[in-house]
Design a binder for these strands. Structure first.
Lengths: 344, 344
DNA sequence: CTGAAAGCGCTAACAT
DNA sequence: ATGTTAGCGCTTTCAG
């Protein structure tokens, strides 16, 4: 017997295999599989049957190279382990649902270096768009984004210049408004507790806004405490204990996120502290977890899901403005006074 | 002037552009950019300089098609919004760090249909491996996985036959062991509270194991309560209240996850119930959140991070056995008695 | 409605 | 140490 080149049975199937199995040209098979152009019902059925029977899975790499089109949206966020970004992702997924676009997530751990690496990696797959958290990037990242030739949406934060489109809230304003609400309620000796992470620019901006509003009222923060790593709930508890021990006459604690706020709240309740009478508390984010606490922590909803949705709509073109530049969407965070700020 | 074909300035740069800018063949540029083969230091520098100056980002689509190699690992999980899968992901990312492999996440929302769609989509990018949560799949998913010709690791659960490799814990055994600990401590009138989700097979298996152990001791569950959606902490609180109202003589509540367990714990403490004296409580997962609670909820660590690490090591080949089939790794969940089970 | 030819941008394999 | 050639598997474009 002549030695024929036996095809490797484990080789992934190609269009050609389906073509041969169905007796139709590769081109027509391709059309059927993409619902493109007119194909007779009979041919279509034969092709689909063959593809299914063989278990053909198209090769998107080849398809993308040929068509110069990739149905991927790069989503670059700092973390998955707090409750905030999964919610943004949910909004993105929801809005991308019927667009044929697929989100691909990259995580930076709040590092601009990692962001640069992740971005480079993702851009090398030529996605249809990029959604990236924050306005702060390395120069190289910024250059890559500017030159990518695809829609870019920076999300979460609107306090600063954007590369292309921008959807988020003003964290500075969120800080100011929380300060205003606290002052209006008559609190005066205020402590701040937050993350140490130097790269959480949004937390920093909230603190800046908060502080500015206090200053304008002739006040300043009475104490601050920062943490990094570990269980946020536990850190909130520990920091609260430490701060109150140091400064027993504080009458308000402003936390940079709900999780540490929740820890603080649990601690205060255990200690029998009169909340909100003697001590008021507030966090930030409006996470669902707060619903299950013994008392509702005051917070500010960061519109996370909505931010994701709008960003995705911009990428998918569902929300195309006539403007030349990108879109700018500033959402308005809602103060949720809960039960830990007394009435003014 | 003759009309020369002006290149589109927004066209993404190609290897050819770098080649021309550096006066070196495309092939050599390719070698430099991939650190492959021998290239003189001088040439290397010229190429890197040109690539950087132009802002060249390689096209991995073309590269992957030509090399038949894709540095992507598909990771398919049911959800991002509880604390469990982000931890698994963290383990995967960590183990993939220096392998050149990149995880790409797909979410199924506990639906086998969605799993099938996500899997199809991901396989069409020809990843180097697949890590998928659970052993239960549709026939079509199973066929796709079997025929993909790449390493497949099913994670989280070892109670059942695997397609290729398998890393996880026995949830049936986890349920049994928790039951044993509870019985040993002298509790007898036991209620179960969990998710309604019919597709959370691991929760189901834990309950089966738990129940089996009770039955063998001549007991059965005194009451059950199921929920779906909403804030898990709040649901835990509400379900606990409902169950205790209905059944005040229960002496133990077993929760299918730590989050509802935490809600239940907070409720019981508020009500002044003697925990663990009159009523014992236990959850499942060993989430970090528990550290911040007023009392440590008994739980069982599900080895989430480790599962992710090992799965990633199998895919990356760091952990290659001589066996023909896939690897099987059963981890042993550790009981963490905390402060909500009394001493036997 | 269907098919043939010509690439997409890169890399394997083989020169030199 | 560097260059040349021939595809990778698909889609675009143009013919029928």
């Amino acid at each position: 017997m002549t030695k024929l080149p036996t095809p490797d049975p484990r080789r992934p199937l190609t269009l050609r295999d389906v073509s041969e199995a169905s007796g139709v040209s590769e081109m027509t098979v391709s059309r059927v599989l993409r619902n493109r152009g007119d194909v007779s019902a009979a041919t279509r059925d034969r092709v689909l049957e063959a593809a299914k029977r063989l278990g053909y899975v198209p090769n998107k790499i080849a398809g993308a190279l040929a068509s110069q089109r990739v149905n991927l949206v790069a989503v670059i966020i700092p973390s998955l382990s707090n409750m905030v970004f999964p919610e943004v992702l949910a909004g993105i997924s929801e809005a991308l649902e019927d667009t044929g676009l697929q989100p691909v997530v990259g995580v930076t751990d709040y590092s601009l270096e990692r962001e640069e690496a992740v971005l480079y990696e993702m851009l090398s797959w030529r996605p249809s768009g990029v959604i990236v958290a924050g306005l702060e990037h390395s120069d190289i990242s910024r250059a890559m984004l500017s030159n990518a030739g695809i829609p870019i949406v920076e999300i979460m934060d609107v306090d600063g210049p954007a590369i292309d489109s921008n959807v988020g809230i003003s964290h500075r304003r969120a800080g100011r408004e929380m300060a205003a609400a606290i002052l209006a309620a008559g609190y005066r000796r205020i402590g701040f507790l937050g993350t140490k992470m130097p790269h959480d620019h949004r937390a920093r901006k909230r603190l800046e806004g908060f502080r500015a509003a206090l200053n304008e009222a002739g006040l300043d923060l009475a104490d601050t405490e920062f943490y990094s790593g570990g269980s946020a709930l536990l850190k909130g508890r520990e920091m609260t204990q430490a701060m109150l021990a140091r400064n027993p006459d504080l009458d308000f604690l402003y936390y940079s996120n709900d999780m540490i706020g929740a820890g603080g709240l649990l601690y205060c309740l255990e200690q029998g502290i009169d909340v909100p009478g003697k001590l008021g508390l507030a966090g930030f984010n409006g996470v669902e977890l707060l619903d299950g606490l013994p008392r509702r922590l005051a917070t500010m909803d960061a519109c996370r899901r909505e931010i994701g949705q709008i960003a995705a709509e911009i990428i998918s073109g569902k929300r195309q403005s006539d403007l030349v530049g990108g879109e700018r969407v500033e959402l308005t965070p809602k103060l949720q006074p809960g039960d830990t700020i007394r009435n003014a």
